[in-house]
């Protein structure tokens, strides 16, 4: 069973090793690999229909709702950027159920589209219901802050600004939170390297003495 799941590259030597086996068995095993995966991908996503909340959102916001899908029992609504604040305000104050809790606010950098996806994980405490709102902002645009709707958003938006560089309009105190104030760049962008040191910053702030090229690394300093 383990052999079935291996990468195609890894499979080649395994087949060589079992050359004595009858050749008729091989295509059977390959068929098994492909079938369940494809089914899993296609079965997971479906349009939401017959849900009163999603229907009311669709009715109110019309073409602003790009899609409303269900994946792995999670409801996901994708909306256009210009009406997302209005939609979130509706979900916070006047929809049934009211989503009184913002569990999480985060972002994903879509490097090839040069944009960010902003994700709001909403939660209705009484009804124990989750809803995910997604919207897309291009790299040079900014988005309206939701601190006025949920106070949680304050630090969460600061973190997104810090790590992605997304600007939030009307945020009360938009500055870096995890990285130091003078840092250059936003680490969770795809173009930011995994291993990297800002030499100028380290030199200025950490006051680490630079070692000369012919320095003695035996640990014996003056």
């Amino acid at each position: 069973m383990a052999d079935e799941e291996k990468n195609p590259q890894e499979k080649a030597p395994a087949e060589k090793a079992t050359e004595t086996k009858p050749a008729a068995e091989k295509p059977k095993a390959e068929q098994k690999v492909v079938a369940p995966r494809k089914a899993a991908v296609s079965a997971a996503i479906s349009e939401i229909s017959g849900d009163s909340l999603i229907d009311s959102v669709k009715e109110r916001f019309g073409s602003a709702v790009v899609e409303a899908i269900e994946l792995c029992q999670q409801q996901i609504v994708r909306v256009t950027k210009d009406r997302v604040y209005e939609l979130l305000g509706y979900l916070r104050h006047s929809s049934t159920p009211k989503f009184n809790m913002l569990t999480d606010l985060t972002s994903v950098h879509l490097a090839e589209k040069r944009s960010f996806e902003i994700i709001y994980q909403l939660y209705a405490l009484k009804q124990s219901r989750r809803l995910r709102i997604k919207t897309e902002v291009s790299e040079d645009e900014s988005i309206h802050s939701v601190v006025s709707l949920w106070s949680t958003a304050d630090w969460l938006e600061r973190e997104v600004y810090d790590l992605f560089g997304v600007r939030f309009i009307d945020h009360p105190d938009l500055r870096r939170i995890l990285l130091p104030a003078g840092w250059v760049g936003h680490p969770l962008r795809k173009e930011y390297p995994l291993e990297y040191q800002d030499n100028d910053w380290v030199k200025e702030n950490l006051k680490i003495r630079e070692l000369a090229e012919d320095a003695d690394y035996t640990g014996k300093f003056e």
Partner: peptide, 29 residues
């Protein structure tokens, strides 16, 4: 579990799961 693939490739999509850690809701997106 009997059928866990050796190479893990979750189907394309996004998933949020949370559990009650001692500190509160720990979520992974």
């Amino acid at each position: 579990a009997a059928r866990v693939p050796k190479v893990l490739k979750p189907p394309a999509g996004d998933y949020y799961h949370s559990n009650e850690s001692p500190k509160g809701e720990l979520g992974i997106y």
